[in-house]
């Protein structure tokens, strides 16, 4: 994936973060969305380790040793930041106070199942907060490359890996498309400029429902 396509994907996901939202950005690709948010956008960023009101990432020279996000990056507070313990932090998650979480994925299925925390026999670092975020945020977006390094689709009919949560995903942002999980199935919402719909379908492991009329691009 070219860096241009990746940045376009992150910028597209950023456009769905609206004023007033409380948002959690997962570790990895989703954190990259930060770079595409208007600094003045009135949102509250939550991080699992006990902050509501996460500011920008800080270089080492400016870092506070006691202030990191859940991914371990040094961050700044903002006006209105609060700190709390881990039980309170996950009360925010499980009580449904997150309007949106954006998460990475190993596999995401056409029915909204998400697998992003375990590859049996190869990768089992523990779930961290992923299960609770996926299961309880009011809206779950997945940010992922459309295919893996070997070119295999990451959007599939059924997940083969252990699930993070069943039926939790609402929208998928990739370098090639934006797709919505709907009761009818996986619906193409937008296509990346220059991507052919047939090529998109062949890179997708599940049938894509086409939008009415011309396909919007991003």
């Amino acid at each position: 994936m070219s860096s241009g396509a990746k940045e376009r994907m992150l910028a597209r996901a950023a456009r769905d973060i609206r004023p007033g939202m409380t948002v959690n950005l997962g570790i990895g690709l989703p954190t990259g969305v930060l770079g595409h948010l208007d600094a003045g956008l009135p949102i509250c960023l939550h991080s699992e380790n006990g902050i509501a009101g996460v500011g920008r990432q800080l270089p080492y020279a400016e870092a506070d040793r006691n202030l990191i996000d859940a991914g371990g990056a040094y961050v700044s507070p903002v006006a209105g930041t609060s700190y709390f313990d881990s039980a309170v932090s996950f009360s925010i998650v499980r009580r449904g106070r997150l309007d949106l979480t954006l998460l990475g994925a190993f596999e995401v299925a056409m029915n909204g199942d998400l697998a992003n925390w375990m590859i049996p026999g190869r990768f089992s670092p523990g779930p961290g907060g992923a299960i609770e975020l996926a299961q309880k945020a009011r809206r779950v977006g997945v940010i992922t490359m459309h295919t893996d390094k070997s070119g295999r689709p990451k959007i599939v009919e059924r997940c083969t890996l252990p699930l993070t949560a069943a039926g939790c995903v609402n929208r998928i942002y990739t370098d090639m498309a934006v797709c919505d999980i709907t009761p009818e199935g996986l619906r193409l919402a937008e296509i990346a400029e220059g991507v052919d719909p047939d090529r998109l379908q062949s890179a997708t492991g599940a049938p894509l429902l086409m939008p009415e009329g011309p396909i919007p691009t991003f």
């Binding site: 039980a87 996950f90 523990g126 609770e132």
Partner: peptide
């Protein structure tokens, strides 16, 4: 024993 982070917190609480 791997435990979901908020559930670990809540079991301790």
């Amino acid at each position: 024993e791997l435990v979901s982070q908020g559930i670990l917190a809540e079991r301790i609480r």
